[in-house]
Write a protein that binds this DNA or RNA. Structure first.
Length: 459
DNA sequence: GCATGATCATGC
DNA sequence: GCATGATCATGC
């Protein structure tokens, strides 16, 4: 037992002053060597609670600091050449599907009351270090009520959408790609033993937790870290006036921006919006899509924060599918051999939100067909992509990196080279050199997405 | 005509 | 120079 002042019932300024003492230090510097480190993922946070604030870890409904009205969260940051980045999503609180269905107001919801005011402790995560040696980079209060109105509205839309899925009896179909900043992230081993009841369906749903998406956490922690303010000259916001979000959701607003251009040729749209666009550039279609959204920069603030991947796709009208499959980043054979499906790069990439912008060939030019948000259904991810990934891993491990699943083996995904040229190779676990490869979504599968979304998004 | 292997273009 | 997104080339 430590002889340590308990801050549980302190006022907010006192809690904050105590929190600031952490900045620039490690727990070892503050509390010495003689500390037992708990096992598991939350060790750092638990140590801060106990050593620095003098209370034992808990999972009460009540805030960690009820008087100050603050919930303590610790989150890791990693350093990259682009600056500090959140190491992972920030898990806020478990979703109780039965309770959520009863909660009509976001501002009075269990989620908001518990997580609307966070005391965030940001530490510098380094793989091989003990949590006692993490340097604390910054602390600060993050209040949803204090966020800019657009962010706040998008979070409220996300919460509403997750709740609506529960009301529709679709809690088991929720996917991390359904929402923008706040997502329903899976918890547990994914074996089914953590499944929960939902109120409007007899199907059990995986255990999920409200979480801020990793890309959003990156933006939350930046102002808390000294000297990490960034000028983002290549980025513009999509929504300029929060009033726009009072009558419609962020998703609706995005899709509405495409409406005036439906059915028009890409050349016609380009000459109206920006005659200077380079029509021969590989990114011409993506440029036109950004202009339709009202943005002239390469990046879009809300899409960066929500990690929304915008894909422009050209459909061959005859076959109702694109000519090309869709590539993902090349993998490293030895990395893939070591990963598990749940922490694989592929699962990560396919759990994102996509915004597809479809152009259809009319024989002479491409015309805007429609745009649609899309997330890969959990059943497809687990039932169809996972086997491809596992088979790929199996073959790499058994020395068959030059013989990976082809598009005939799955409806959804396959593996193909993705390199500068045939000499651009990567080393495999058994030491041979094989041309770099990546996972691809089959062109026919993209065609299915086109047809499904066309039904609900066309005029 | 498509599957598959190969390579280009661009931005950092 | 490399990663990534995009597209070409060819043999079945």
């Amino acid at each position: 037992m430590r002889d340590q002042h308990d801050f549980t019932n302190a006022e907010r300024p006192e809690v904050l002053a105590q929190a600031r003492l952490l900045v620039g230090r490690t727990l070892r510097q503050l509390y010495g060597e003689d500390v037992e480190v708990p096992k598991g993922k939350g060790a750092f946070g638990q140590l801060v609670e106990w050593l620095h604030f003098g209370y034992p870890p808990n999972s009460l409904k009540e805030a960690d600091f009820p008087v100050a009205n603050l919930e303590l969260k610790a989150t890791g940051a990693v350093s990259s050449r682009k600056g500090w980045r959140a190491k992972e999503r920030l898990v806020l609180s478990n979703i109780n599907y039965l309770d959520l269905a009863q909660e009509e107001q976001f501002e009075t919801s269990t989620f908001y009351v518990k997580n609307g005011q966070l005391l965030l402790v940001v530490y510098f995560w380094v793989a091989e270090k003990s949590p006692l040696e993490y340097r604390i980079l910054g602390v600060g209060v993050i209040e949803i009520a204090g966020m800019n109105p657009v962010d706040r509205q998008i979070i409220r839309d996300d919460w509403t959408k997750i709740r609506q899925a529960v009301l529709d009896g679709r809690a088991h179909e929720l996917s991390e790609g359904d929402t923008s900043y706040l997502k329903a992230a899976r918890k547990g081993a994914g074996t089914g033993q953590d499944d929960r009841r939902q109120p409007f369906s007899s199907v059990a749903a995986p255990n999920r937790a409200f979480s801020f998406r990793q890309s959003f956490v990156t933006r939350l922690i930046e102002p808390l870290i000294d000297g990490s303010k960034k000028l983002r000259e290549d980025e513009q916001a999509l929504v300029h006036d929060e009033v726009e979000l009072e009558t419609k959701t962020f998703d609706d607003l995005v899709l509405e921006r495409f409406e005036p251009f439906l059915g028009r040729t890409v050349e016609g749209i380009a000459s109206e919006l920006d005659p200077n666009l380079n029509r021969t550039a590989k990114g011409f279609y993506a440029d036109v899509a950004r202009r339709m959204l009202g943005v002239s920069t390469r990046r879009i603030e809300e899409f960066e924060k929500a990690d929304i991947i915008m894909k422009t796709v050209r459909i061959q009208s005859r076959r109702k599918r694109p000519r090309e499959s869709m590539a993902f980043p090349a993998f490293r054979y030895r990395d893939l051999a070591k990963q598990t499906w749940l922490d694989s790069d592929l699962r990560d990439a396919l759990s994102k939100r996509f915004l597809f912008v479809f152009f259809v060939d009319d024989g002479e030019s491409y015309r805007l067909s429609h745009a649609a948000f899309w997330a890969m259904p959990e059943t497809t991810l687990e039932g169809e992509v996972r086997p491809v990934w596992e088979e790929t891993q199996r073959r790499i491990k058994s020395g068959r990196a030059d013989d990976l699943p082809t598009s005939g083996e799955s409806r959804v995904a396959h593996v193909r080279p993705h390199a500068r040229d045939a000499a651009d190779t990567d080393i495999t676990p058994d030491g041979s050199h094989v041309v770099k490869k990546c996972f691809w979504l089959n062109a026919a599968f993209i065609g299915k997405i086109f047809e499904e979304t066309a039904r609900t998004n066309q005029p």
